[in-house]
Write a protein that binds this DNA or RNA. Structure first.
Length: 609
RNA sequence: CGGGACGUGGCGCAGCCUGGUAGCGCGCACGCUUGGGGUGCGUGAGGUCCCGAGUUCGAAUCUCGGCGUCCCGACCA
């Protein structure tokens, strides 16, 4: 029998407490509860959250990027999942459970069977048919939609599930940050038109904000590259932490925030002096870098140079050579370059390729005459220039002749730029592109959620259509919305810990409160602790009773490590009818009357739910 | 997939260079002690030294091959 208790929190929201105290009565005693804490940092863990997850007995590793969740970990996982459920249901989401094992067919229909490389776990069944382990579920939900949804009257639909996903990551890392098998809440919206998608997208966006706020995570919503996922727009939710893998640029002044792969900044205007009527070639023996040329007599400062990089892009399975032009002091952002071309892959050209195209080595390359040089070698070369070079003249750049450069180069006059694009990597301290006075800060963050407007990419390729009121058949307009469960756990720890261990936000903590009996050998303490434990449970709280025959110091250390927000210490003061209330985050301790402690904890534990 | 490091009782490490009976701390079991921030003392259990092949009278140690894990980069729908 599992009873559900519904508790009303201070802000009036119903919190569904799925843990039945009657059932768990005897499994929440630390002496028998499985919490293998570690005194020392495990050798394999580098980032804080990983160390603490292991030390606090929350997870154990099975293989690279594959972890078992121990009882404490499972409790946290269930709390996160429940929270996701509540917020998805609030916006009208309907929960499904889809298979993790998929036939190749549906992935071939959408085109992703071939588009996705080694990141997908693939296998064959006994008949030799191709199968895969689901890394996401657009195809499966679309399959259901196309078979069952016929009319605009059935739309919109918001479908979601909380499922295990598999991705054969090239480099799993940092504990639960990059996993090969992980739990994900993935939701999909189905609308009749773009306007409907906009509403669904906004609903999700608001749900995500509530979710991360409830989870105690400080997050930022950023513009991000939607990559091969396709679609018209995407918002990435990121949590700031040095362990993160993404770089984010934000402006505190106006709230501008973007992933570095999208971020731009405002450049100070440069007015060039009028240069010569045509570029002038001059010898530059030994000069190989922008830096070299700044100190070379007759050279130029970095911002007056044009950096020339040769890249090979894979576009629609065809290789295209590109000459990329940047201002000398600017850094190319490769994702931006790939996005500008719609390329599936890009790489710097090899030195032989460069010589074949331009007749010179890296260090002496330039855009003047570059296309002609490539054509002479029977090759096509696309010239793409960064916006930071627009309108510049009297610049210095390589001459496509070893140990020679050109000065007095005018971009518009001397080069045949095929395409202008924003390719520059933004740096901290640059001016905000949106507001007048803001300055950008660039910092590390981890992705915790991502919402996409897919449009009709999947409905079209897989034939998921409905009839409109006037009887026209149109593809369903879709959105896709994901949140990594483990990433919420990881981000929460990254942002909520101290030297002693984890400090769980109330909403995620595996227990509301831990009751620490300082000395199990004293009957009065033991009995009082047991009594309090039961009282707290009767009040609907999730209580961990530390009834181990350990010294008080050991218990305090462990309680700090596993991060339960409140600890009630049952010690000598019990003779005066007092216990101690220790708040993990504030690290403050106060005496509370035994008769008041239950209601006190109840109020505290519910805050923030 | 490129580069680097590591693999020795449950955990953290030493030993390897210079081949010769496998060691320390923590944890664990037992006893005494202590009892409010990882008590102290004693006794004890526990190891295919990642796997395989080779060199050698003899390999944790040297050589070759493989596997695994971590870190940097590439990648990351």
């Amino acid at each position: 029998m599992v009873a559900l208790t519904f508790l009303l929190s201070e802000n009036g929201r119903v919190h569904q407490n799925v843990v039945d105290y009657k059932v768990e009565n005897n499994s929440m005693r630390w002496s028998q509860y499985f919490v293998p804490t570690l005194r020392e940092d495990p050798a394999d863990a580098e980032v804080v959250s990983h160390k603490l997850l292991l030390r606090a007995g929350i997870i154990r590793q099975l293989a690279a990027g594959i972890y078992s969740y121990l009882p404490l970990g499972q409790r946290v996982t269930l709390k996160i999942m429940q929270m996701l459920r509540e917020e998805m249901n609030r916006i009208g989401g309907q929960e499904f459970s889809l298979p993790a094992l998929h036939p190749a067919e549906v992935w071939k229909e959408s085109g992703r069977w071939d588009a996705i490389g080694d990141d997908m776990f693939r296998l064959k069944d006994r008949k030799g048919a191709d199968m895969c382990l689901g890394m996401t579920h657009e195809e499966i939900f679309t399959t259901i939609a196309r078979n069952e949804i016929r009319s605009y009257k059935q739309l919109p639909q918001i479908w979601y599930q909380i499922q295990i996903k598999f991705r054969d990551e090239a480099r799993p890392k940092s504990g639960l940050m990059r996993l090969r098998t992980f739990i994900m809440k993935d939701a999909y919206s189905f609308d009749i038109d773009e306007a409907g998608l906009d509403r669904s997208f906004e609903d999700q966006r608001e749900a995500y904000q509530r979710i991360f706020t409830r989870a105690g995570i400080k997050y930022t919503i950023v513009e991000a590259s939607s990559g091969a996922m396709g679609g018209s727009a995407s918002n990435e939710f990121v949590a700031r932490t040095d362990a993160g893998e993404d770089l984010i640029a934000t402006c505190e002044n106006c709230g501008y925030a973007a992933n570095l792969e999208k971020a731009t900044s405002r450049l100070a205007r440069i007015t060039d002096f009028v240069g010569p009527k045509a570029p002038e070639e001059f010898p530059t023996p030994g000069v190989r870098t922008i830096e070299d040329l700044t100190t070379f007599p007759g050279g130029a400062t970095a911002e007056n140079q044009i950096k020339s990089l040769v890249y090979v892009a894979t576009i629609n399975n065809e290789l295209t050579a590109a000459l990329v032009l940047m201002r000398g002091d600017h850094q190319l952002h490769e994702t931006k370059l790939a996005d500008a071309f719609g390329a599936t892959a890009i790489r710097p050209a090899h030195s032989e390729e460069i010589r074949e195209l331009l007749g010179a080595s890296a260090g002496s390359l330039g855009g003047v005459g570059a296309k002609e040089s490539a054509r002479a070698a029977n090759r096509e070369l696309v010239i793409v220039a960064d916006e930071g070079l627009r309108g510049r003249r009297n610049m210095t750049t390589g001459a496509n002749r070893d140990d020679h450069h050109l000065r007095g180069v005018d971009l518009a006059r001397d080069m045949r730029v095929d395409r202008w694009a924003d390719l520059r990597t933004v740096a901290s301290g640059e001016a905000c592109p949106r507001c007048e006075t803001g300055v950008l800060e660039v910092y590390k963050a981890m992705e915790i959620g991502h919402i996409f407007k897919l449009g009709t990419k999947y409905s079209q390729s897989m034939g998921a259509t409905v009839l409109t009121p006037d009887g026209k058949e149109v593809p369903i307009v879709m959105g896709s919305y994901g949140i990594g469960v483990e990433r919420i756990m990881t981000a929460a720890i990254e942002q909520n810990h101290d030297q002693d261990g984890i400090i769980w936000p109330n909403t995620l903590s595996p227990f509301d409160v831990v009751v620490t009996i300082t000395n199990m050998k004293q009957d009065s303490l033991r009995e009082a602790g047991e009594e309090l434990y039961k009282d707290l449970q009767r009040a609907g709280l999730e209580v961990l009773l530390d009834d181990r025959d350990e010294r008080a110091g050991v218990k305090f250390k462990d309680a700090d490590l596993i991060g339960i927000p409140y600890r009630i210490t049952v010690g000598k003061k019990i003779a005066d009818g007092l216990v101690e209330l220790f708040k993990r985050r504030a690290k403050t301790s106060e005496d509370v009357k035994l008769s008041d402690i239950v209601s006190r904890i109840q109020k505290l534990a519910l805050a923030g739910l």
